[in-house]
Computed example of a mutant assay.
Amino acid sequence: MSNNLKIALITGGNRGIGYELVKQLAMRGFKTILASRDSETGHEATQKLKELNLDVSFMAMDVDNQKSIREAADIVNKKYGRLDVLINNAGVYLEENKKLVAMDPSILERTMLTNFFGAYHVIRSFIPIMEKKGYGRIINISSEYGAVSAMSYSGVGAYKLSKFALNGLTQLVAAEINGDIKVNAVDPGWVSSDMGGPSAPRTPRQAAESILWLATVGSEGPNGGFFRDGKQIAW
Rank of each mutant, 00 (worst) to 15 (best):
L54T: 01
N77W: 14
V76K: 09
M59L: 14
E71K: 14
D64E: 15
V76W: 12
Y80L: 08
E51M: 09
D74N: 15
D64C: 13
Q66F: 10
V63Y: 02
E51I: 03
R70P: 00
D74P: 07
V63W: 03
V76M: 13
K78M: 09
K67M: 06
V76Y: 10
N65L: 05
S68I: 07
L54C: 01
K50S: 11
I69D: 04
V76C: 11
I75S: 08
I75Q: 11
I75Y: 12
S68D: 10
A72Q: 08
A73T: 13
S68E: 06
R70M: 11
K50C: 09
E51P: 03
L49A: 04
D62I: 08
A60N: 13
V63C: 02
R70Y: 11
D55V: 00
S57D: 10
D64T: 15
Y80W: 14
K79R: 11
A72C: 07
K67Y: 06
Q66E: 14
D74T: 15
I75N: 09
V56W: 03
A60E: 15
I69T: 06
D55K: 00
A73V: 13
D74Q: 15
R70F: 12
D64A: 15
A72G: 05
S68Q: 03
Q66N: 12
I75C: 06
V76E: 13
N53L: 04
N65F: 05
M61E: 04
V56Y: 04
L52R: 07
D74M: 14
K50Q: 15
L52P: 02
K78W: 06
A60T: 12
A60S: 12
F58C: 00
Q66H: 10
D64V: 12
M61T: 04
F58D: 01
M59R: 05
M59Q: 08
F58L: 00
D55Q: 02
Y80I: 09
Q66W: 08
A72V: 09
D74E: 15
L54R: 01
E71D: 14
A60G: 04
A73H: 13
A72I: 12
D64F: 08
I69S: 02
N77C: 12
L49R: 02
E71H: 13
K78Q: 13
S57K: 02
E51L: 11
I75D: 08
Q66Y: 11
Y80K: 06
D55M: 00
A60Y: 09
E71I: 13
F58H: 01
Y80Q: 09
V56K: 02
E51Q: 14
N77I: 11
Y80A: 10
D62M: 07
L49S: 03
K50A: 08
